[in-house]
């Protein structure tokens, strides 16, 4: 490889278009989970560890995407930061937007991002939600970096009849979807309510 094509010499402003194969990613991510698994004493600790490795990614991707964004704006409202996550962040990390973003009906401080095919649990049979904790960490990192303190957790929900979405080519279709539950802290909600006036 010539020097000019080194990753460090590339302009940071340009979005990257090169892609990694799903298999290479699959094995790498599997190693990450196994690394944490050997160091965690329980499933919940594994979840925490995966979330904390995602946290740094989220924090940095927020910085990077804000920098690349021409008008250099910073999201200040709950809805807009969530839209930023489910579209811009998702697109830059996974090459597509999240499947949907919803507000919880029962709890006003909770929001949900749905994904039918999160890449962290494509190859997983059990403990899908544990594997998805990495993405919940990314979301948590973006939110914390943008000044929205929140607790984010990953869950796996069975999909209903007729809701079928095609999964990866060559893999059996998935019967569940990932839900990333975002619970904002009171302060954030108060601030957002003030901005409404």
């Amino acid at each position: 490889m010539s020097k000019s094509t080194s990753i460090l010499d590339r302009p940071i402003l340009k979005p990257r278009t090169d892609q990694v194969s799903m298999s290479a990613y699959g094995y790498l991510y599997s190693e990450l989970v196994q690394y944490h698994q050997t160091r965690a004493s329980s499933i919940s600790e594994l979840e925490e560890r995966l979330a904390s490795s995602g946290y740094g990614v989220g924090f940095k991707i927020l910085e990077l995407l804000s920098y690349r964004n021409k008008d250099n704006r910073r999201e200040t409202r709950i809805m807009s930061i969530l839209q930023f996550i489910s579209s811009s962040v998702w697109k830059s990390l996974f090459g597509r937007a999240a499947d949907s973003l919803e507000k919880s009906i029962e709890h006003t401080d909770e929001y949900m991002i749905f994904d039918y095919n999160p890449i962290t649990s494509n190859f997983v049979s059990v403990n899908k939600a544990v594997s998805d904790a990495y993405i919940s960490g990314i979301i948590g990192g973006v939110l914390e970096g943008a000044g929205f303190t929140a607790r984010v957790s990953a869950h796996s929900v069975d999909i209903e009849e007729g809701e079928m979405k095609n999964g990866l080519i060559g893999m059996p279709s998935r019967k569940d979807k990932a839900v990333f539950l975002i619970k904002f802290s009171e302060k954030v909600l108060e601030r957002d309510a003030k901005l409404d006036r």
Partner: peptide, 29 residues
């Protein structure tokens, strides 16, 4: 191929251990 996809890439699968993966069974189906 199904084995490499559904067992080897599964972070919770241990090498040389029995395959108890729904994904794998479905792939074989």
């Amino acid at each position: 191929v199904a084995y490499t996809d559904c067992a080897l890439k599964d972070p919770f699968y241990e090498l040389e251990m029995p395959i108890r993966s729904d994904l794998f069974s479905e792939a074989v189906n």
